[in-house]
Write a protein that binds this DNA or RNA. Structure first.
Lengths: 226, 226
DNA sequence: ACCTGAACACCGTTCAAGT
DNA sequence: ACCTGAACACCGTTCAAGT
């Protein structure tokens, strides 16, 4: 996408140590996906890459800028979807694709919290979703609000859903040990509750509830208009 | 709830500095709600309370235990709901109540990420929701999976929804500045998109989509059975 | 131009000591 | 029993210096 400066073969400037913004971002994302945001530090990234910590500051003004860079660089290549079918089917496919991407790079969802979009690279999914919704006849405001719902569910699932940290057996133990007099229902459903917390398919369940509810709202308003 | 040890008037042990687990947790939650999780530290909490940092370690083994304590202590008093009406109405009311609680204490949602339930105090909402769903005729597994969807949406909204950090004008600026050739739809909807990101009512929109989709699934399966 | 160590103001936590 | 300072191993970042 970006034009090269002076070198011919590579499309991004590379220093004498072989460093570039892109390369640093790749290594940072690897470290992040491996050990999580809590364990990430500039010093550790430097160590891992075999360079001095302060070298990083030659490429990014500070830690936050580096993290923003990761979102911008990775989000754009995450989701690819070839649209076909009804708006509902296309939207479903897009959200499943987003879910897959967030599964592959759990760090993205972690970073995205409290870090609003802004960066152009991170908006391709939004653009695609908005296009589908607008083509389906939603008003600008309806489309924007509806996408917010889907977006929050997808990122919420990544942030609060399975795979986060809880080990299923540990959760089951804790739930099984609940006092049955204060938590009668939950104690009765301990196994199912623990299983649901590790269940990836809950995403599709929720997504389909959302899309069905959305479809109902659309046909409802059409009936009102008629 | 806990029985007093030796003192009569107070139901929780108080040290010579007037300290107790409960009091420390209250102060910690205040600090957390005010300045956010990133700015929270044991040293700062000690300073704010006018006590030595290490005094805190007499009440909690470490920082994580203190944060777990906040969830446990606060979650139980957060949500009160008097159930009436259909399961759909009661569930709706419960989730709106949870949303209100998370708005009041944004720190809770921040803490809950990567911190699975386990603590008994944090499970009252879960128990209530599961009771409603079970009474409505859902199987144990269906009820558990459905509550997961609602839970993730509510916490996802708190974690990724409005109020997080983005200033609306700043977001609007960023969206307006998008290149219209790569983001035609989004550029066209910049105002609506920015507004939707600050819009609290998007929670109810999504909640109703979920509940409508859920209702449709229920009536659908009944029709299958008949 | 690119890279870096020393230094500063922060962390959480251990440990030994104060009352 | 309750409280605490010093010390250790970490942070992010500034600044001045190296090539």
């Amino acid at each position: 996408m970006r034009r090269s400066t002076t070198e011919a073969s590579s499309h991004t400037p590379v220093s004498r140590l072989g460093l570039s913004r892109e390369y640093i971002l790749e290594e940072a994302l690897k470290l992040l996906d491996r050990d999580g945001l809590d364990a990430f530090s500039m010093r550790r990234l430097g160590n891992e890459m075999g360079i001095g910590t302060m070298t990083l500051y030659g490429y990014f003004p500070n830690r936050d800028a580096l993290l923003d860079g990761i979102i911008d660089a990775s989000a754009s290549k995450l989701v690819t979807t070839k649209a076909s079918g009804s708006w509902k089917e296309r939207l479903r496919e897009l959200m499943l694709s987003l879910r897959r991407a967030l599964t592959q790079h759990p760090a993205i969802a972690e970073l995205r919290r409290s870090r609003p979009l802004i960066s152009p690279g991170a908006l391709e999914v939004t653009e695609t979703a908005m296009r589908i919704l607008r083509q389906a006849g939603f008003s600008k405001a309806e489309a924007a609000r509806t996408y917010r719902v889907l977006y929050i569910f997808a990122f919420g699932f990544a942030g609060y859903g399975p795979g986060a940290r809880s080990e299923e057996t540990e959760t089951l133990e804790a739930l099984s040990g609940l006092p049955a007099d204060t938590y009668p229902v939950l104690a009765d459903c301990a196994g199912e509750a623990a299983a649901s917390m590790a269940d990836e398919t809950v995403f599709e369940l929720g997504l389909d509830y959302l899309l069905d509810g959305l479809e109902k709202a659309v046909t409802g308003s059409r009936r009102d208009a008629a």
